[in-house]
Amino acid sequence: MSDYNFAYLDEQTKRMIRRAILKGLAIPGYQVPFASREMPMPYGWGTGGVQVSAAILTPDDTFKVIDQGADDTTNAVSIRRFFQKTAGVAVTEATTEASVIQTRHRIPEQDLRDDQILVYQVPIPEPLRFLEPSEVETRKMHSLEEYGLMHVKLYEDISQHGDIATAYAYPVKVEGRYVMDPSPIPKFDNPKLEMAGIQLFGAGREQRIYAIPPYTQVVSLDFDDYPFQPTKADHACDLCGAEDSYLDELIVDDAGGRMFMCSDTDYCTSRRKNGHVGAQGVPFKEDAA
């Protein structure tokens, strides 16, 4: 792909995105409008994350891409290959070896270091969108710090279901000011939003970039009598035995038999390499899954 510039985007586009990223970092949780470009993959398939990654990658980076926590899901493979081709960066599946990680729907189990950057793909960046479809109105609400609608919604959940009925894309308040959509990560991941690494969020179709600098206060919305609870399936991973990781549920036979395994494939593999074996797992061997 020698016809294309380093990391695909032209320099003027990168500068525009870079300026938006800086303002995003200066105003944590605020959605900065940016003139998203058509990328060579469809809107809704990570074009926001891809544009942010293209704007921040250097040739020295080691890049990791996960989708649902896994490195080998097809869209993760597709995005990883795109940057291998257009930026010539090294790629890895190991969380600890990556300098930039692009993700869809998960935060890696392994805590990120301060020299790592996490780039989120975001479908609908506006946390108030499903309560108020109009952008004109939601922008006004953010400007006035008028988040009553969100609290009403969460409270109605409690009165109807006895619980807050939001399991992913659970809204947070950043540094006491902006209510933010953390992208559709499970609420299990919300506590990890306060981390040492830089977090950047890109929504291509909706033309928004936002950011959380390291060590920024990120609070999941809740009520005193209904405190926020990060939850996961009440199981251990059947492959590596981990009890602290977010699990995928698999249907394994015609009778509807279930098993659970880590959604973070690198976390699971690393544990198995270190000798951990779950209830249905086998001792780790190189090249065997």
């Binding site: 058509e38 809107y43 989708d67 649902q68 899901t73 939850t231 996961k232």
Partner: peptide
Amino acid sequence: IQATGFLEHIKLPHYVDFQSELELIRKL
């Protein structure tokens, strides 16, 4: 282009989100 991309993205894996809803609905 925006519409078709977002519409068709629901073909992509959503195991994680679906799992979180599964747990929630079982609990409720």
